[in-house]
């Protein structure tokens, strides 16, 4: 279908000194579901609008299957954008909303009616065609917006924070719906979100944008296992960063000499490991075992967060509540950092 390629895309709004988006490059393979992830104001929605042709880039290029689309009008690009607040036309019925794109293409009304019916089946709202959007719940409005976008069979689908306005229980339902429709129709899909959970749950690949620049473009789990830098790791909930030196096999730091997995970076850097990967050391302690003092215990219901001290270094750990029931603040706790969970940031 459509391979989307973004090259050095930059947007400086008139009157602004800093670019809202700074030379973003991205390859989105045909049919993939890609997340643009970043805090609000990082240039995600700006990027989407430039792909959709609703905003003119300051420089850079957007190509579909190798052809630049910057000169194409928004209605000719085959890109449909679904906004965060759905923006269903309030004066039209649900069916008229869904059929809007076909009506604009002057499709025969009988045909429109048929396809609207099919589409409403697909998003599981078969009986609501005559309602006004204001009579629908948020989740239903979201489906109608999705149906309205998919009915025109776009080459590229853009979703703005597709799950963020939904209740927790609706999120997974909507995630499944979006994924199944997207896979079935094979539409190259890009969505933006500020919520890392939303990104990893929904996307094939995630592009993290911080301060208008792309930090990392990778598979979802890579952001937890192999973050490119501290900011990226922190965005994904990373807490432990220990400065030191790596020789590729061992990491020399205030925590002592720790064994690294194969292929670790060398030189000055920071060792990072996720709080949930910190374990209590088994009886037969081996390498990467440390003695920590418990500074604080925070009970979170399904898990317990521990603030630990190893010498002068603070270490965050998340454990199963049952494991740490018997410990209290001030106790010494032997901990173990599994080799495969360590990662060195240069």
């Amino acid at each position: 279908m459509t391979h989307v390629s973004i090259k050095e895309l930059t947007k400086v709004y008139p009157g602004a000194t800093e670019p809202s988006l700074d030379r973003l490059s991205l390859e989105i393979p045909t049919g993939e579901l890609t997340a643009l992830l970043g805090p609000s104001g990082c240039g995600k929605t700006t990027t989407m609008k430039m792909i959709a042709g609703l905003l003119e880039p300051t420089s850079g290029d957007v190509t579909f299957d190798g052809r630049s689309v910057l000169k194409d009008k928004p209605e000719d690009r085959g890109v449909v954008m679904v906004f965060q607040n759905y923006l269903l036309f309030p004066y039209m019925s649900v069916a008229d909303n869904v059929g809007f794109g076909l009506k604009m293409r002057k499709v025969d009304p009988v045909e429109i009616k048929r396809r609207v019916g099919e589409m409403l089946e697909l998003v599981k709202l078969p009986d609501l065609g005559d309602r006004k959007p204001s009579a629908l719940s948020g989740g239903q409005q979201q489906r109608v917006a999705l149906a309205r976008a998919l009915i025109v069979q776009p080459n590229v689908l853009l979703l703005d924070e597709p799950l963020s306005n939904l209740d927790a229980h609706l999120r997974f339902e909507m995630r499944d719906l979006i994924r199944s429709l997207q896979q079935e129709m094979g539409i190259t899909t890009i969505f933006v979100t500020h919520d890392q959970e939303e990104a990893v749950v929904l996307a094939d690949r995630v592009a993290l944008i911080l301060d208008g620049r792309m930090k990392q473009y990778d598979l979802p789990d890579a952001f937890y296992k192999r973050p490119v830098d501290e900011a990226t790791a922190r965005f994904f909930g990373g807490h432990n960063f220990v400065p030191g030196t790596s020789d590729g096999c061992r990491f020399d730091s205030p925590l002592g000499k720790l064994t690294l997995p194969e292929g670790a970076a060398t030189g000055q850097g920071k060792l990072t490991f996720r709080p949930e990967n910190v374990r209590i050391a088994p009886e037969a302690a081996g390498q990467n075992t440390l003695n920590a003092v418990i500074a604080d215990i925070i009970y979170l219901g399904t898990q317990t967060r521990l603030k630990l001290r190893v010498g002068e270094t603070e270490v965050d750990a998340i454990m199963n509540p049952n494991e740490v029931e018997t410990f209290s603040v001030g106790d010494t706790l032997p901990i173990y950092l599994p080799i495969s969970t360590l990662w060195v940031i240069r």
């Binding site: 609008k49 609703l54 794109g101 604009m104 976008a149 853009l158």
Partner: peptide
């Protein structure tokens, strides 16, 4: 934004 939606759904400026 409503107009943006309409444009991206294929409506011309006049439509």
């Amino acid at each position: 934004d409503y107009e943006s939606v309409a444009r991206s759904l294929g409506a011309s400026k006049w439509q």
